[in-house]
């Protein structure tokens, strides 16, 4: 196998199409002004969350309203945590999103590999079916799904959120498209001639090559699972919530206090946003790749 791994490294990566780059038109001042404006609009509500979350309510009631960050942030966060155990919700969400991500990445890589590189009867039809499933809005099946979960006694339990989300058609598609181009078929054939089993080939040859795409898929899946709301709202309640359900509960308290809701929103949102910005380049690349690679 060692020889195979060396081969992997020496096989040249297919170069991405260089698109229009190089001969692209250069942006003028107008472009910068508009894009900066769009950026400001994109970020301002998040900044303003911090402004509200760090003031007392009476400070926010002044005119003109404050625009800077103040000192009451931690008091407000403490109050938010008193009203709704958001830390427990965050832990729940880390667990739920983590399990969903693990399942999705594992299953989608396996079937993406099969669709991309294995010859078997029905390959194309099954792949077409996989894509077709994305046309069905998943929300329309929630009623029987809820009845299922109720009969199993899983309402208010986290597995009710995890199990229906363990695979994703997008993930299968994404991994297949990546492996079709990135995985040299000759390498697989070499492994096959060596007498390795399909699964061994998968582990030792495919996985190392698939890793970058798996990382992107993991990030997108985690984000999706973390932000999911409708189904978790149906099967969980505020006593054992994911972060979005808990946050919604905080927002719908009997006496809504805007500064406390915003402090809670920061707790539930900003850590993920920081990770998002750090990994932003890869995520942007992943979304654009998912859009064009065909």
């Amino acid at each position: 196998m060692a020889t195979l791994e060396q081969t992997i490294r020496t096989v040249p990566r297919r170069r991405r199409r260089s698109s229009a780059a190089g001969r692209q038109l250069t942006a003028g001042p107008f472009t910068y002004i508009v894009l900066i404006l769009v950026t400001v609009i994109s970020v301002f509500p998040l900044y303003y969350t911090m402004v509200i979350g760090s003031h007392t309510n009476s400070e926010m009631a002044k005119s003109p309203p404050p625009f800077s960050v103040n000192t009451s942030l931690f008091d407000n966060m403490r109050e938010a945590l008193k009203q709704q155990p958001l830390f427990r919700d965050i832990l729940n969400s880390i667990f739920v999103s983590g399990m969903i991500t693990l399942g999705t990445v594992a299953f989608c890589t396996l079937s993406g590999f099969a669709f991309a590189k294995l010859r078997f009867r029905g390959n194309k039809i099954l792949f077409g079916l996989t894509l077709g499933t994305t046309l069905i809005p998943p929300q329309l099946g929630v009623i029987p799904l809820y009845m299922y979960m109720a009969k199993l006694g899983w309402i208010h339990h986290l597995q009710a959120v995890i199990l229906p989300n363990l695979v994703s058609a997008f993930g299968v598609f994404f991994m297949r498209q990546y492996l079709v181009n990135a995985m040299p078929t000759e390498l697989l054939e070499a492994g096959w001639v060596d007498g390795a089993s399909t699964f061994r080939i998968f582990r030792t040859i495919v996985l190392p090559i698939a890793r970058p795409a798996m990382a992107v898929l993991a990030m997108l899946t985690f984000l999706f699972a973390w932000n999911d709301f409708f189904w978790p709202l149906l099967v969980l309640n505020s006593h054992n919530a994911t972060v979005q359900v808990g946050l919604a509960g905080l927002g719908q308290g009997y006496i809504p206090q805007q500064n406390i809701i915003m402090a809670g929103t920061m707790l539930c949102t900003f850590p993920l946003l920081v990770v998002f910005v750090v990994l932003g380049k890869q995520i942007v690349g992943g979304i654009m790749q998912g859009a064009v690679k065909g």
Binding site: L35, V38, T39, S42, V43, P45, L46, T49, L223, W226, N227, F229, V243, Q244, L247, A248, G251, T265, C268, T269, L272, L273, F276, V277, G280, K281, I283, V284, I287
Partner: peptide, 15 residues
């Protein structure tokens, strides 16, 4: 620019 414009997408619909 791209990352900044994608930040709303990363913010949950609830938040």
């Amino acid at each position: 620019f791209r990352i900044a414009m994608l930040m709303p997408y990363a913010t949950s619909v609830v938040a």
